[in-house]
Design a binder for these strands. Sequence first.
DNA 1: TTCATAACCGGACTACACCCCGCTTAGTGG
DNA 2: CCACTAAGCGGGGTGTAGTCCGGTTATGAA
Lengths: 203, 203
Amino acid sequence: MEPIGLSLGQPREERADAARNRARLIEVAREMVAELGADKVTMDGLADRAGLGKGTVFRRFRTRAGIFHALLDEEEKRFQERLMSGPPPLGPGAPAVERLVAFGQARLEFLMEHRDLARAAIDPGQPVAIGDSPSLFHVHMLLGEACPDAAVHGTLALQLVAALEGPILLYLTSADDPGAPRPGAVASTLGASWQVLVERLCA
Amino acid sequence: MEPIGLSLGQPREERADAARNRARLIEVAREMVAELGADKVTMDGLADRAGLGKGTVFRRFRTRAGIFHALLDEEEKRFQERLMSGPPPLGPGAPAVERLVAFGQARLEFLMEHRDLARAAIDPGQPVAIGDSPSLFHVHMLLGEACPDAAVHGTLALQLVAALEGPILLYLTSADDPGAPRPGAVASTLGASWQVLVERLCA
DNA sequence: TTCATAACCGGACTACACCCCGCTTAGTGG
DNA sequence: CCACTAAGCGGGGTGTAGTCCGGTTATGAA
């Protein structure tokens, strides 16, 4: 007989050993990033140090970028928390424009803080998954609330997110560049101009 | 005796054989891109097909991305030409805001047309050189003219360029994705929203 | 024409991302 | 407790980016 009922979204839950290994890999990866920098972390090295086979690493994370994506995701969750249920103006309770400004500035700080991870999480030859990105969703929502008349919300939100994240993901030099300006300074400069952008857009 | 005079900016002109090889490599690379797609072009393959050693390819272009950058640069020059001396509103002669809008729309079309090259020209682990990018320069100039009151021009221009180029460089799926929307449609949707962005910013 | 030298060339070599497939083990139903 | 099966595991194999260095050649000067 077949088992009754429909299968779930995930065909099967992750096996216990697999989950254990994922956790261990993430832990070791975090150590290695802190110790050597993201660009010195290799799949072989990670597997060795975790005491696991190379195949295991790839099955869990698909690609090298996948590892850093997983690391970043953990931080991202904490950031989400602040948006959804933190104090205003970042969290709910303030006017939309204010929230948008606050979001941009917080997001810039977040990205600057984790920029090595964020850069390493980009999979070359694979588009950055923005479609299901919480950033895009959040900006889209606030934009619809703040300027209901701007007809092209979807696209505009995409461009705003690009304006916010692009400079750091694409154009900025990496963290260990000696001639780089202080991260805080960059974030606040970009933040100021984000504010101008948003406030004029929704005037 | 030492030769008189100061040395030039470039210590020495490129040797004739080197120049010949560069030209040949670019030519063959263009063929291969057209024939196989950018992601199927390998350094070994290029060297073989050009009848040259691999070392030569790397000396001329530094990295894999460097090749595509060189290819794109040739197109880019033609684009520049239109900005500097073409008919308005893209070229000089129209009000700054109009030129900015026109620039964005032309740039989007340009990037969509060459998006595979543009994507391939990104060197992972190396920031995209925006500092000396003509796009940034152009936007910066027009922005200063169109809204002299927006204090943060430099950064704002950077963000605008990111809003323009980011979606295509970062977030869009590549050309040979079957489910992708028509390039022209993407460019014009993004273009419409670029217009909203610029016109409100400089209102 | 010949010489000196700096730039150039080729291709073997290294390192790393990612694939593959036979073996092992966790989870399940009897 | 046992047998069965699918998921998981390991680590050798492959392809490609990028490095290195001994031999070669273009170029300018004598």
